[in-house]
Write a protein that binds this DNA or RNA. Sequence first.
DNA 1: TCTGGGGTCCTAGGACCC
DNA 2: TCTGGGGTCCTAGGACCC
Length: 414
Amino acid sequence: MPIAPRRLIAHLDMDAFYASVELLRYPELRGQAVVIGGGRERQPMLRHDGTRRYASLRHYVGRGVVTTCTYEARAFGIHSAMGLMKAARLAPDAVLLPVDFDEYRLYSRRFKDAVKRIAPQIEDRGIDEIYIDLSEVPGAQNDAGAAAARALKDAVFEATGLRCSIAVAPNKLLAKIGSELDKPDGLTLLAEADITTRVWPLAARKVNGIGPKAAEKLAGFGLHTIGDVAAADPHWLLANFGRSYGAWLHAAAHGRDERAIVTHSEPKSISRETTFERDLHAVHDRHALSALFTQLCERLAGDLQRKGYAAQTLGIKLRFDDFKRVSRDVTLAAPVDAPQAIRTAAGSCLKRVDLSRRLRLIGVRATGLVPAARAASAEPPTPGDRGAAKSPSPTRHKWQVDLPFFSASDDGAV
DNA sequence: TCTGGGGTCCTAGGACCC
DNA sequence: TCTGGGGTCCTAGGACCC
């Protein structure tokens, strides 16, 4: 039996992806501070002389956030998820472009296809990053994946005109940390022997899985770097962060991660949500809310049908003006994918929430996804068909699905 | 003048079943 | 007759990621 090759896992991260795609379209913006975000903004205007007029951040009014921005904009202190109003104060002359997901998805497919031609084992981690298993790529074992990584970078540039950063490491955790070490246009090789010198000095927050809350809690104990966490007594970590998360923290800080590359996965949920331009009240803005709610349900139904799923469980998500969040969901006797059925189920969830506060966001979510073909054949449910919905127990029927909160007659009032 | 939209995974309690 | 133990499903919320 052949000896299993040493694992060589790469993480590839496109550099300022959305902004870089926009620069391909608008090359005259190269070198400038450009911010992508907002969503309801207009595309640049084409003047009669063929030049373009771009919106600047200066006059932005609204609730949009920065989706991403160029490295020149980052120099002003702008970063992803920052409110556009705040970004405008930092760099009023920065150019503001609307997001164009269709365009980014196109480039996403291009770069992933280019990678697959060299290394077919890839794990999707969203629109602009992937993990790649290089373990069995010819020659990769000879130089720790250096030449393969070089070839991947070249192939991505050839296919898209875009730069990316790649790290090769013994596992996903280290590869992810590594791809950030030399950005942009980076190529990093990270071995186990490098952990103490190159990983331990980094902020704990650099570990994928240590977010703002965990980092703050760690800092409260005086643990700031990954090395600090690695040096902490494992029993103490377990006692303070729970059995599961504590054990993971200890392993992660030591660079240990056995997770496999997942080359295929099915969606678990599909959702649509929207933040209002101004906060809305369930009573005073009843018609506007009803129309928006119906629209969300229709879009969700469209997504489900396009992707070929029906949902056994429907839910809503609300965010109030004080930013508090609640969710409600209901499991149905049979999966649905029709807009009216979704609207009815989601409406029943809405009725279970105290709506005296103004709302800032409303969302609709489908979970318990089953292939639509199976859902259709399960109606009516046939005895012994495991695909058919189990009939819910009495307590699960506590919330009857009948009238939607916003009556259907309200739809279209706005 | 705060804070988008689309996801995943985990926890925890109650109901229910064997 | 005084209280088991394991397992699953459902629901709500939270942390985290891109």
